[in-house]
Nucleic acid binder design. Structure first.
Lengths: 222, 222
DNA sequence: ATTTGTGAAATCATTCACAGCG
DNA sequence: CGCTGTGAATGATTTCACAAAT
């Protein structure tokens, strides 16, 4: 029953981990002591086997007939997710999208902290963005180095402001960026970029649905 | 469990398509006539081979020594992405996240239209959300059916409001949901749900950095 | 009787190697 | 040459089948 997988955890698994953690925490608040992979899978629209594989990857152990112990699994998951030095992030952008990110606390709930907010638009510098002073982009590289920040969220959707901000980031030592701008910005090639936008997600869902229709027509069930 | 799509196009490919389309359109505005897979790959942090494979999947054809014809490829891509009946979507939620989505026009730029905005919080009903009347959730199922809507974006992050909204959606015929709430909501099992939040994306990036992993060329990810 | 745990198999996606064309 | 096109190889992830555990 002792499985270990130190490193080499599938990326899709890593992305699901925060969801498990939150669900475990929710249930902990209700006083639940055990959660089965079946229950977790139902709630997260995943197969039970996938859930068990994922949890076994980070060393979480369950018990036959009971499921996974809530408190212990929370510890395993949160230490895996939060136990590194990637928890502090910079937010680039201070517009509606950036505000939404700060406002709804998604990052915070995942154990990430927005340490500072930057913008390339001179008009916004010095203004307040949910309790953060908006800093000019030219301070970005130096602060990244001095505060040892590795991750940034990029949330400027105006193409011109975005390009300016990108230029300012170019010289920095930032290691990873989550780009929500929906633009095709040419980040330096040594930066790990994770691009996303809602349009592309909807395109994906639409495509999956298209499949459903075909499957129905050809009588392939499931 | 996971179905294939109409033309057997890999889901990750489908998610990259909108990014190609946007880039082609940008370059079209500049008067560019041809784009090489090399150029596209650089801009999107993808390998050139991946770009060619993706484009060939939707039937876009390039020309040796030149690349892909800008106008024609735009037509191929946009007809593939927009040429179905999934372009109209409902937006569930009217808070900061929902406003951000409407404001920065990400959906619109990808060929999706937000047709109506709903909320489960009685206080918000009838208020204005970027030009849309906020409708009560109890109208959701009927309007889904009558307007033949298949996709919804779920953007309520308050757990109680979210749960109420979900209940109201339960009876509807909605086929796919892009859930931005970051909550673990139990959508009906016949609904295709695309769950994601920024926290989970950062966790993924952090993991790539930490494990010193491949990261061959990271890019638009699933 | 259920529910976890896991190697093996299947599925899915990316990258390679090289053919073909302008 | 430079660049596209694609079957084959590789790699990654999910699912299966069943053993082990309580």
């Amino acid at each position: 029953m002792r499985s270990m997988n130190p490193r080499g955890i599938p990326l899709p698994t890593v992305r699901r981990l925060p969801f498990y953690l939150r669900l475990f925490r929710e249930e902990a608040d209700k006083g639940t002591l055990w959660l089965s992979s079946d229950f977790l899978g139902d709630r997260l629209s995943l197969g039970a086997i996938q859930v068990r594989k994922d949890l076994s990857m980070v060393g979480a152990e369950g018990r036959a007939r009971c499921g996974f112990p809530v408190q212990n699994t929370i510890e395993v998951l949160s230490s895996f997710l939060g136990g590194d030095d990637y928890a502090d992030v910079f937010l680039v952008g201070s517009g509606p999208l950036a505000e939404a990110i700060l406002f709804d606390g998604t990052l915070f709930r995942h154990g990430f902290n927005v340490i500072a907010v930057f913008d390339s638009n001179p008009v916004r510098i010095g203004m307040d963005c949910h309790g953060h002073d908006i800093l000019p982009m030219n301070k970005f590289p130096d602060l990244v180095r001095r505060m040892n920040i590795r991750l940034a969220v990029f949330a400027i959707s105006d193409p011109e402001d975005a390009t300016n901000a990108l230029t300012a980031m170019g010289d920095s030592q930032i290691a990873g960026v989550c780009d929500l701008s929906g633009l095709s910005l040419a980040f330096p090639s040594d930066v790990i970029v994770d691009r996303d936008d809602i349009g592309s997600r909807l395109a994906k869902i639409a495509s999956e649905l298209g499949a459903g229709r075909i499957a129905l027509r050809s009588g392939i069930s499931e």
